[in-house]
Measured scan of single mutants.
Amino acid sequence: MEVRTIKVFTTVDNINLHTQVVDMSMTYGQQFGPTYLDGADVTKIKPHNSHEGKTFYVLPNDDTLRVEAFEYYHTTDPSFLGRYMSALNHTKKWKYPQVNGLTSIKWADNNCYLATALLTLQQIELKFNPPALQDAYYRARAGEAANFCALILAYCNKTVGELGDVRETMSYLFQHANLDSCKRVLNVVCKTCGQQQTTLKGVEAVMYMGTLSYEQFKKGVQIPCTCGKQATKYLVQQESPFVMMSAPPAQYELKHGTFTCASEYTGNYQCGHYKHITSKETLYCIDGALLTKSSEYKGPITDVFYKENSYTTTIK
């Protein structure tokens, strides 16, 4: 009895394709271990004539594949690729409408935090270190965002349907971005203890939790000093293409032309909904596939993004 075979390709990165001759009487799992086709788990399936010449994702289970996976995804987590594939199996079914010149995501599976993050990423200057993220990001900007969303979920250790947080998501993504040249110098002034300067680099240099107003941050924000008295913390120097200011959701007025974009969060910790506000020729609110415009805006804002380049204080 002759062994019926077909020729397929296996890959971990969709760049390096490895030619395989597979036995049609055995499952993919018996031949390769966990195997995925377009995100779908085909591990328990036997090869079919229609699979001839198709590319299958496999887990990096030998040295060659491990090197290829690390170079593309910059992670050695053995569960990463499987999590990416199972997320992709959902995100490829989502709709990605162009809204006001940006790629958004039609609401499904509690994905409003991903839509808000995706919209924000198209408006701030950011370059990702893992080629996987950078490639998928370019495709997302062009309207094909399924891979990018699935990668975000995998890097953030999230599953489809789980509630997510924009600030946490951005923080994970910033860790995989090139923020080497970003720098922030802060000064804390206390009447009792004097003053202390701190220099922050990388992710810490672009994120701040405690106030939404970048102007206020430049002037000074009140913080408790270690001595128990009130101290003032203010920005001395900022070198970065953008800054992200966050605070627990509270009524906040966004003035046209003073910011790049913002995240609105309605609801409580267990259950809520994100919308995205962007400042173009007027203010726009993007909620999944829905767009509304207004000249002014007041609502429960939790993150505001500002364009920056270089700032030095005039406070002496």
Rank of each mutant, 00 (worst) to 15 (best):
I286G: 06
D77N: 04
V236D: 05
K229P: 06
A177K: 07
Q123P: 02
Q251F: 10
K316M: 15
H90E: 11
Q197W: 02
D41Y: 07
L59V: 09
N187F: 04
L81M: 12
E264I: 11
T292R: 08
E144N: 12
G161S: 01
Y172T: 10
T313C: 13
A177P: 04
H74D: 05
L17H: 09
G194W: 02
S240L: 01
Y137D: 01
L17Y: 01
E215I: 08
G33S: 05
T64A: 12
G82M: 15
E168C: 15
M85R: 02
M207H: 05
A40F: 10
A205W: 00
Y172I: 15
N61D: 13
H74L: 06
D303N: 10
K106A: 15
E162H: 06
N14K: 06
F242R: 03
Q251M: 15
D165K: 06
Y214G: 02
Y172L: 15
T75K: 10
L133A: 00
Y36Q: 07
C193L: 04
K275G: 00
T302P: 00
A145N: 03
Q123S: 05
S86H: 08
K233S: 12
S86Q: 14
I223G: 14
T292K: 15
L121N: 01
K280N: 09
E125C: 00
T159V: 09
T11C: 01
Q238Y: 00
T232E: 05
D23P: 14
L153A: 08
I315C: 15
A146S: 11
D303R: 00
L290R: 12
T11W: 07
Q251L: 09
S25R: 11
A250M: 15
G257M: 05
V12P: 05
P248K: 03
T169K: 00
Q31N: 12
T10V: 14
G288P: 04
Q123I: 05
G288D: 04
Q196M: 10
P97A: 08
E162D: 14
T282N: 05
P224I: 12
K293D: 00
A177E: 02
S50P: 12
S104V: 06
R167T: 06
A205S: 05
T91E: 04
V12E: 11
Q216S: 10
Y57R: 06
P47L: 05
E162M: 02
Y96W: 01
F217K: 04
Y284P: 05
C261N: 01
M207K: 08
P248R: 13
D180K: 14
C190K: 05
Y28R: 12
Q270H: 15
S240Y: 04
K293V: 07
G257Y: 02
L118M: 08
H48A: 14
P241H: 06
S86F: 10
Y234R: 11
T192Q: 08
P249N: 01
R4S: 13
Q31M: 12
E125Q: 08
E204W: 06
C227R: 03
Q123M: 07
N61W: 08
L102Q: 06
C190N: 04
H18Y: 14
K158Y: 01
M207F: 04
G33M: 03
N110C: 08
K218V: 04
F128P: 08
Y28F: 14
V21T: 13
W94Q: 00
T11E: 11
Y265K: 01
K280L: 14
G101I: 01
I15D: 13
Y113K: 04
T226C: 11
M24T: 13
D135V: 08
P47N: 01
N16M: 15
Q134M: 07
S213C: 07
I286Y: 06
R83F: 04
M244T: 00
V236N: 06
Q230H: 06
L88V: 00
Y84D: 05
V189Y: 09
E253Y: 00
L179Q: 06
K95T: 13
K106C: 14
T260I: 15
T11G: 08
F32I: 11
G39L: 06
Y311F: 14
V243A: 05
V221A: 06
H273N: 06
E308D: 03
K44C: 15
H74N: 13
N187Y: 03
F56E: 07
L37W: 12
H256I: 15
E215Q: 06
L186N: 02
Q195N: 12
C225M: 03
L291I: 13
T266H: 09
A115G: 00
Q30E: 11
M209F: 15
E239C: 10
A154C: 03
Q20C: 12
M26N: 13
S171C: 15
G101V: 06
G194S: 02
Y208M: 11
P248S: 12
T120Y: 02
R167V: 01
C112N: 03
A247T: 03
T199A: 09
S295K: 15
G29Q: 08
K233I: 12
Y234A: 02
D165M: 15
G161C: 01
P130M: 03
K46I: 13
A108C: 14
R4H: 14
S50T: 14
R66M: 13
T116K: 03
K218F: 02
P34H: 08
L37A: 12
P97F: 07
C225G: 03
M207G: 02
G202I: 02
P130A: 11
N49F: 09
